[in-house]
Design a protein around this nucleic acid. Sequence first.
DNA 1: GTCTACAGTTAGAATTATTCTAAGTAGTGT
DNA 2: ACACTACTTAGAATAATTCTAACTGTAGAC
Lengths: 138, 138
Amino acid sequence: MSYEIEQLLLKHGVKPTPQRAVITQFLLSTHSHPTADEVFQAVSESLPVPLSRATVYNTLNCLVEAGVLIEVVVEPGKSRYDANTTQHHHFVDTESGKIIDVRPEEVKNLPLKLSEGFLDGAFDVEDYRITFFGKRKS
Amino acid sequence: MSYEIEQLLLKHGVKPTPQRAVITQFLLSTHSHPTADEVFQAVSESLPVPLSRATVYNTLNCLVEAGVLIEVVVEPGKSRYDANTTQHHHFVDTESGKIIDVRPEEVKNLPLKLSEGFLDGAFDVEDYRITFFGKRKS
DNA sequence: GTCTACAGTTAGAATTATTCTAAGTAGTGT
DNA sequence: ACACTACTTAGAATAATTCTAACTGTAGAC
């Protein structure tokens, strides 16, 4: 397993195992926001040892807890995963279903501020995500 | 069934049936963003006729298609439904899991504009939703 | 008024995504 | 080598949703 992946996992307090490394490696190499099953498909092809679905789910949950990955929920029924853990947003192409990362700088007028209302008054807002919907220009 | 509900369904091209009316009625009466199962539980108690889960799912999908409801996906595994179809955002209380509607006016600096970038250049952004995460102030 | 057609509803089976369980495996420290 | 612990495994179990095929019930044709 590559030194960089090993260091990344260690830095987040995750014991580096071959399965975890290869799953992390795959997610770092793509911007396609794959589902757990897509990770399973892609990784089991390129792995010398057999890989269980349970391990994929365990690993993804573990990596999300540790902050190595972000879980992205934009459509009902399944979660998607993103190794880009910097603050960013998502654009969903409603025709293809593809999800594209949107850097905060691409959105004007950020950071958002809440006005003085019940939300700002009663709650601590720790984070926010914007999901854009639209279509590719023809 | 109430005249208002009947008119609302007709206006959206949905044939008003008792099941659809009572499900719509329930969603209009709450701000709790219930899941399909919560709708089923709540409605089957107050309905004289038996209600099938399939009907709940059929009806919710039908009402979302017709624009009577919005489907809200903030947590993995299940969809939630919201009869508030005006443009708005959501705040998720990460401790209780409760979802609270946020009116656009509560967020300063809106409407957002995309800067001149690949996203703005290649895609037509039709809509966006902001999901806030945080906790109730103690 | 009856008949027919069709859309809506139903119970339960099937499917899909995810988690659980119990057993097996490997690496680390002793 | 030995035991401890954490990881992985296959398959069972669960949960959310969709499918299927049979059963209404109502609207329009006659």
